[in-house]
Amino acid sequence: MYTGLLHLHNSLRWLILLVALVTLVKYFMGWFSQKGWMKSDNILGILFTAIMDIQLVVGLVLYLGYSPITKAAFQDFGAAMKNADLRFYAVEHFIMMIIALALVHIGRSKTKKAISARRKFGISLVFFGIAYIIILAAIPWSRVIA
């Protein structure tokens, strides 16, 4: 079960990075070209948010139930904080991804309330862009490359 969930979590990571990048590029082009906010722009925002939500659920299942890394960290949290790998998964990865998810949801909410297309693109670019940077920082690249 753990291996399957971990593979799903890893696969969703690449999907998130791809959808986020496509969304950011499309919004960037929309903001600079001063085009109208299209249905496809809205769908991209919904898709990015939905995939992030699915990733959260899979991540929480791993974090709270199946990951041997977090299980080890929770057994002696004080010692885990002194171990960079355990601290990363038990605290840093988790918190940064929650912040990224919150930014995506805030950006999505503010975008829906904005009236002008330029404002929608601008708000989305700021919130989704910051979330994207946080996501990139929170990915355990040493495990991806290895």
Rank of each mutant, 00 (worst) to 15 (best):
A131S: 07
S33H: 07
V25I: 15
R118F: 08
S40I: 14
W31M: 08
L8H: 08
L21V: 10
Q34M: 08
L62K: 01
Y66F: 15
G129W: 00
M96T: 04
F32Q: 14
D53V: 13
F28K: 05
T70Q: 06
H93P: 07
D41S: 13
I130N: 03
Y27N: 10
K120A: 07
F94D: 02
Y2K: 10
K35Q: 12
E92L: 11
A20Y: 15
R13L: 15
V61K: 10
A146T: 14
S124P: 03
K113H: 09
K120T: 11
I134A: 00
T70M: 06
I135W: 02
L6S: 14
F74L: 13
S40H: 10
G129E: 01
K120E: 09
L18M: 14
V126Q: 08
P68Q: 12
I145T: 14
I145P: 05
S11F: 15
L17K: 09
D41W: 05
T23P: 05
I43W: 05
A90E: 05
S33R: 11
D53P: 07
R13F: 15
I139W: 06
D76C: 12
S67M: 03
G36L: 08
G59W: 00
A50K: 11
F32R: 13
Y2V: 11
F127A: 00
G30M: 08
A79Q: 03
Y66R: 08
V25N: 05
L44W: 04
S40V: 14
I130L: 07
V19N: 07
K120L: 11
A84W: 01
F88A: 11
A73P: 00
R119H: 11
G129P: 00
Y27M: 12
L64Q: 13
W37A: 01
G107L: 10
T111H: 06
G129M: 03
I135A: 02
N83A: 02
L15R: 13
V126N: 09
M96K: 07
